[in-house]
Amino acid sequence: MPIIVNLDVMMAKRKISLGDLAEKMHITPSNLSILKTGKAKAIRFSTLENICSILDCQPADILEYRKSEEPE
């Protein structure tokens, strides 16, 4: 998928575990894991705001667009 979620990078920088972040965000660790592993199909603005607020970062630190390589 062209949208890459770099949540694990930001979590490592802020030294916070998945469980702790999920607890602070009031969502289940399994849901956060879906986001972290890139299996999510969409993210709500409210969730993105919540993450940026807790991890003190910008949306661009969490989400990255990488053009998918076209087959030759």
Binding site: I27, N31, L32, I34, L35, K39, A40, K41, A42, I43, R44, T47
Partner: peptide
């Protein structure tokens, strides 16, 4: 439903 479940 699947879309909704995979929207965080």
């Amino acid at each position: 439903r699947e879309d909704s479940e995979l929207t965080i």
